[in-house]
Amino acid sequence: MGVAIRRAGEEDRGEVVRLLDQGFSADPVSNWVFPSPERLRQRHAALMDAFTSIALEEGHVDLAVDGTGCALWASVPAGAHGDDDDPVRFREAVDPDNERVEQIARLTAAVHPTDRAHAYLMMIAVSADVRGQGVGAALINSVLEECDRAGLPAYLEASSLRSRALYERLGFAFMGTPVELPGGPFMYPMWREPRG
């Protein structure tokens, strides 16, 4: 199955947020951030919108032309470590009364590699009706091919063992120590060296 992909812009924000909201509403990490089903319904889209803003500002968003999937990427320079107030601002933008929004931002920032520039796959979502048909792999591989040409590594955090296995098939390797969300699931930092 050929997947046509284009770079999304601000005008695509609604479609991207909808895909992410649907794709991650049952994800174990999203359900840890929003343990109340009502709060998940109310604020989850705001979390996805905040991630979309970061990708549009610090990287790019790839969108399947037919609207079946999207991938959020950030370009991370060597030595990047962010501002200590970034998690606070993130929480204020998403759900000011929910300390888990800030907590997950701090926990993932603490393990994010800073020694080398890399492409960071922040999130990827594929419509349920086309999962397993290669849309996600196409969205990821289009950027990994660019990384390989540029000699640039890639990084992500898998939110489940299932997604970790999918990323391993694309050349990512688990970095050895998971991120443990207090009382919740694990996240798996993964790194991919460029292929020559």
Rank of each mutant, 00 (worst) to 15 (best):
M1P: 06
G2C: 09
V3T: 15
V3Y: 01
I5V: 15
I5Q: 12
I5K: 02
R6M: 06
E11M: 04
R13W: 10
G14R: 12
E15C: 01
V16L: 05
V17N: 10
L19N: 08
L19Y: 09
L19W: 07
S25A: 11
A26W: 04
D27L: 02
P28W: 09
S30T: 11
P35E: 04
E38C: 05
R39L: 14
R41W: 06
R41L: 07
Q42E: 15
A46Y: 09
L47C: 09
D49K: 08
D49I: 00
D49A: 14
F51W: 07
F51S: 04
I54G: 11
E57Y: 03
H60M: 14
H60A: 15
H60I: 10
L63K: 04
T68D: 13
T68K: 05
G69P: 12
G69A: 07
L72K: 09
W73L: 08
A74E: 08
S75T: 00
V76E: 04
P77G: 13
G82I: 00
G82P: 10
D83L: 05
D83K: 01
D83S: 15
D86L: 10
D86T: 13
P87W: 02
R89K: 14
F90H: 12
F90L: 13
R91M: 07
R91Q: 15
E92N: 12
E92Y: 00
A93I: 07
A93N: 09
A93V: 03
V94H: 04
D97A: 13
N98E: 13
E99W: 06
E99I: 01
V101W: 09
E102Q: 14
Q103N: 03
A109S: 13
A110D: 05
A110S: 14
H112N: 13
P113G: 02
T114N: 12
R116W: 03
H118L: 01
Y120W: 01
M122T: 01
M122K: 03
M123Y: 07
M123E: 10
A125W: 08
V126M: 02
V126W: 02
V130Q: 01
Q133D: 08
A137G: 13
L139P: 08
L139D: 02
N141H: 07
S142D: 06
L144T: 08
L152G: 02
P153S: 04
L156Q: 11
L156E: 00
E157A: 09
E157D: 15
S159R: 03
S159V: 14
S160H: 03
L161Y: 13
L161D: 14
L161T: 06
R162I: 11
S163K: 05
R164S: 05
R164E: 11
A165F: 01
L166A: 15
Y167V: 03
E168N: 03
L170T: 06
G171Q: 02
F172Q: 02
F172Y: 14
F174E: 06
F174K: 04
G176H: 07
G176R: 06
P178N: 08
L181M: 13
L181K: 08
L181I: 08
P182C: 09
G183Y: 13
P185N: 10
F186H: 14
F186I: 00
Y188L: 11
P189F: 04
M190R: 06
W191K: 01
W191E: 03
R192M: 01
P194V: 10
G196V: 02
